[in-house]
Simulated scan of single mutants.
Amino acid sequence: MLKFYAYTMLVLILIFSSVSEAMTKSQLKQAGKLMRNVCQPKNKVTNEQVDNIKNGEFIDDKNVKCYIACIFTMAQSVKNGKLNYESALKQIEMLMPDSMKEPAKKVLTECKDVSEKYKDLCESSFHTAQCMYKSNPEIFIISFYTPIIIHIEITIKMKVLLGIFGIFFLMCSCYGMSAAQLKKTGIVMKNVCQPKNNVTNDEIKDISKGDFPESRNVKCYIACILQMAQMMKNGKLNYDAASRQIDLMFPDEMKAPVKKSLNECRKVPDKYKDVCEASFQTAKCMYTSDPKNFVFP
């Protein structure tokens, strides 16, 4: 189950459990596009303003500063408005390619106290980003534009390090993820949608096993996940986009069965005007169609 409204959010929260699951530089960069697609419109910044950041041009503009804060927040790089150093270190170990780990840690260490000087989240994020760029431009570009690890433990409203599925879907087929990675990436989407819809772990923990509680909050949680995955658009199943992303991101052995489920359930949302109800029924349909390959955070 897939793609997410925060296509951009994809921030690579990818909380993978072992180094063997670490992402390549290309995957990290692609993942960054997800976060950008979420934070750019939210903060009303232009392509030029965003692109300038990777060249070390940090415009003294409130929207730009809050765009950076949004990226860090989605990456969960900050906690209570400050850089979450210990968590970021752990995520560097888990997610970054071996060749990048030590330089990334060095950047993180050099800039870990910058945020202490500022009370405003946007301001502290802006100056932390500047510090990271000055310390190592290459590491900054890869980590910020993917936002992968360095920016990872920022707990704020979104908590989405990478819009998990979105991330995967955005990458090219040669970077297809494993089933285990898909499931772990779902944690990111969950961290965004769960608090937003006030659902408990008990309510949603068994959705992937076919347990769909008849609760308004649960239904809207499912809608949030599907929208972030860009599986739903205007309350309807975004079939063409979903099909393309399955081809791009899913393991070969899952592509055909997941596409079959998608096709069988494509008309389900048409029966409902309410997006939460439509999403809920679509998820149930996809589970019923193929429980084995149903993935949901």
Rank of each mutant, 00 (worst) to 15 (best):
V258P: 00
L262V: 01
K25N: 15
P97A: 00
S215G: 08
Y7R: 11
L226T: 06
T155P: 09
K42V: 02
E21Q: 15
D247W: 10
E253V: 07
I156H: 13
T288R: 13
P41H: 11
Q91W: 11
A256Y: 03
V295G: 01
V50P: 13
L248S: 13
Y85L: 08
L226R: 10
N37S: 12
S173A: 14
T46K: 12
C122T: 02
Q130D: 03
T73K: 05
V19D: 08
I187K: 14
K112D: 03
E57Y: 12
D290P: 02
N197S: 06
F140G: 06
L262C: 02
S208G: 08
M94L: 14
M74I: 11
K106Y: 01
F16T: 04
V218L: 07
N234E: 14
A179G: 01
K79R: 10
G56M: 10
M35S: 09
L14Y: 11
E138W: 01
V107W: 01
F126W: 08
I53W: 07
M100P: 02
S99A: 15
Q76L: 04
S208K: 15
V160W: 02
N198V: 10
A88E: 04
I204P: 00
C66I: 03
Q30H: 06
I68N: 00
Q30W: 10
I154F: 12
N55Y: 10
N234D: 15
P97N: 04
M23A: 14
C111V: 05
K134Q: 14
D270I: 00
M228Q: 13
M231Q: 10
L14W: 00
I53S: 08
V218C: 03
E116C: 00
A88T: 10
G166M: 07
A242M: 12
D51P: 01
F72G: 08
G166I: 10
I152F: 01
V199W: 05
I150G: 12
V188A: 15
V107K: 02
F294Y: 01
Y175C: 09
K65T: 03
V107H: 00
S279R: 10
K184L: 09
P195V: 09
S124A: 15
D60I: 04
G210V: 02
S20W: 06
C276D: 04
L12T: 13
L10A: 14
S124E: 04
K112N: 11
D206R: 09
H151V: 06
S125T: 10
V114F: 12
A180T: 14
Y145R: 12
S178G: 10
Y287R: 10
D202N: 15
F4W: 09
M231V: 12
F4R: 11
C220V: 04
V275H: 07
A22V: 00
M132Q: 09
M94A: 15
E57V: 15
K271P: 00
I222V: 11
C131D: 05
A241H: 13
L10T: 11
I59G: 05
F169T: 14
S77L: 04
S20D: 15
I53N: 05
H127Y: 14
K33V: 07
N136T: 08
E93M: 06
G176I: 07
P137H: 04
F250D: 03
N43D: 03
N80V: 02
